[in-house]
Design a protein around this nucleic acid. Sequence first.
DNA 1: TAGCACTTTTAGATTGATCTAAAAATAAAT
DNA 2: ATTTATTTTTAGATCAATCTAAAAGTGCTA
Lengths: 221, 221
Amino acid sequence: MESLSQTEENYLKAIFKISERDGDSVSNNAISMEMQTSAASVTDMIGRLSKKELVNYQKHRGVSLTDEGRQVATHLVRKHRLWEAFLVEKLSFTWDEVHDIAEQLEHIRSRVLVERLDEFLGFPRFDPHGDPIPDADGNFAVRKQVPLSELAVGDEGIVVGVQDHASSFLQYLDRVKLGLGAKVKMLEHFEYDESVKIRQSPDGELVLSKKVSQNLFVQKK
Amino acid sequence: MESLSQTEENYLKAIFKISERDGDSVSNNAISMEMQTSAASVTDMIGRLSKKELVNYQKHRGVSLTDEGRQVATHLVRKHRLWEAFLVEKLSFTWDEVHDIAEQLEHIRSRVLVERLDEFLGFPRFDPHGDPIPDADGNFAVRKQVPLSELAVGDEGIVVGVQDHASSFLQYLDRVKLGLGAKVKMLEHFEYDESVKIRQSPDGELVLSKKVSQNLFVQKK
DNA sequence: TAGCACTTTTAGATTGATCTAAAAATAAAT
DNA sequence: ATTTATTTTTAGATCAATCTAAAAGTGCTA
Ligand SMILES: [Mn+2]
Ligand SMILES: [Mn+2]
Ligand SMILES: [Mn+2]
Ligand SMILES: [Mn+2]
């Protein structure tokens, strides 16, 4: 268990992310996409991670994280999200500004630091984007949430997360006052372009494109 | 001005540190000592830093920082010390625990982050070890301080800094209640081993070895 | 001034991380 | 079941950062 390079950590995080999305076996291709590197580089790195028993790997068969690899990955996610929370809660960054800095901070090595930070923040369970912060054992809180687009007419809900983390999307949400915690009620589905009309508490009405309504998570109330 | 690797940054910081101590022209040897690397590696790196115009260099002639190199170095020191202050002030680390974590945090790249952190901490002028935190332009506060060993009998002072940052020294100081801010009065110099006896406010008396008294900075009162 | 000690540079290798181009394997389609 | 397309691996290079061993340069000392 000598310590990993940032690059190795980034690969593990990428593999974790993809396997959460697409299932346990992750293709070279998906990794090279996510990491923006050549397929050859991925093959090479997978070999190294495999030698360190962080991934299971047989040629042409895809990779999956071992328990240890998964631990490393979830710990990175934990650090990433805690730092994002720190930046927003304590240093008044906005939710569209924190990701890139957290990408760096997540590689800081100090178990104690992470636990102290967690405590300092009051043990937050979700990050500024509504994503769950795993606990020290790598367990994620689950929350029953649905894309806003799936609310039936008349349903009410609260915005609790975003699917897309692009700055432009987050800034758009700020502009239309649909940040985390916003109360919404579905008023109408338009068949034509799958846009929706919602009421946004207490008195605003808003039409949202398909893309927006599918990328916003709400909790039904 | 493409961005520097952590290694390059560490070399610049080392060169800065040595030149503060020993004068502007820094030898290969001193750097290899400070960085714990071979002289050959130093020569190699110096070549690279020179090509990037971060140091002035002619073979066998020693190196010195250019203005740009100096800027980078002082900014690293600024970040290092702000993070140390953060760890102590906000996350309740002790002064002997923070250096290694700050060695990592100092490489985080985000101008805004540094300025926000500075503000969050209330613009501290000194770090937990009493070292000055340079401002954004790289200017260090100067403070007239002397090693405790140089107080004359009867002189009073306040502990404001340490020369040696070793954990064991810092822990020793905690044990004998000689942290930053402690009030001391010189009572006696012992010629035999150059130890000293001091009064430590309000009522303690303490004998300190030469090594200790030379590594503690006080401000005369 | 000639010799010796110490410092610095060069030469040559290694390791991690990356690339492109080509070969091999797998998956999809005809 | 062949052929074709796509994915994955290999081969061979490059670049940064490091090392050891040897050569070259500086400078002190007798
Ligand atoms: Mn993020
Ligand atoms: Mn997030
Ligand atoms: Mn320090
Ligand atoms: Mn310090």
